[in-house]
Computed example of a mutant assay.
Amino acid sequence: MATRTRRETNYFKNPFKMQGIDRLLPAGPYEILTDEELIEGLSFPCYRRVSTMIMVPAAASCTAAIEMVSISSVDLSNAQLRDARAACDPS
């Protein structure tokens, strides 16, 4: 089955937490990798999401090490929503 990987960078304006990651992550840019597989048998190319990963600073590391963590696309969307709401909150 044919697969592809999409890469995008999401910028969080505030420190955030995400389901599946047990620590507070600092604000800044985060690379998101989404693996998708081709749905065969259609007359046009169509892909379905298979997995989503985020690159985060490694825990308890004093170097520039990063780790790839598998996350839910729903958890990513929720974290982005919370970040956008926090940016709009005047308090």
Score class of each variant (00 low, 15 high):
13 K>C: 06
81 L>N: 02
32 I>G: 06
23 R>D: 03
35 D>W: 01
5 T>D: 05
41 G>K: 03
27 A>F: 05
79 A>D: 07
37 E>N: 07
21 I>D: 02
10 N>I: 07
48 R>C: 03
30 Y>Q: 05
82 R>D: 12
30 Y>H: 01
63 T>N: 13
9 T>E: 07
62 C>G: 09
37 E>T: 13
39 I>V: 15
10 N>D: 02
71 I>F: 08
80 Q>P: 01
50 V>T: 15
68 M>C: 05
50 V>S: 12
71 I>Y: 09
75 D>S: 15
84 A>M: 10
9 T>F: 03
14 N>H: 15
72 S>I: 15
43 S>M: 11
17 K>W: 03
91 S>N: 06
78 N>S: 11
21 I>S: 01
5 T>P: 00
88 C>K: 15
81 L>F: 11
78 N>T: 15
84 A>K: 12
87 A>Y: 08
57 P>N: 10
38 L>P: 00
39 I>Y: 03
26 P>Y: 00
80 Q>G: 03
90 P>G: 05
72 S>V: 15
86 A>T: 12
8 E>I: 04
66 I>D: 02
70 S>C: 11
77 S>K: 13
30 Y>D: 00
91 S>T: 12
49 R>I: 14
22 D>I: 00
8 E>Y: 04
68 M>Y: 10
63 T>S: 14
44 F>A: 11
41 G>R: 09
24 L>H: 02
53 M>Q: 15
83 D>Y: 06
14 N>F: 15
40 E>G: 01
4 R>V: 05
20 G>N: 06
33 L>A: 04
15 P>V: 02
54 I>K: 03
42 L>M: 12
71 I>S: 11
60 A>V: 01
27 A>V: 03
83 D>T: 06
82 R>H: 06
20 G>T: 09
50 V>K: 15
31 E>V: 14
46 C>T: 08
79 A>I: 09
12 F>A: 01
65 A>H: 07
4 R>H: 01
20 G>L: 10
64 A>I: 11
38 L>T: 03
75 D>F: 13
22 D>F: 04
91 S>Y: 12
34 T>L: 00
46 C>I: 01
49 R>N: 12
12 F>M: 05
4 R>F: 00
54 I>F: 02
63 T>M: 10
39 I>Q: 09
28 G>Y: 02
43 S>F: 07
36 E>A: 03
45 P>A: 10
32 I>D: 02
2 A>T: 13
49 R>C: 07
84 A>W: 07
17 K>F: 05
13 K>A: 12
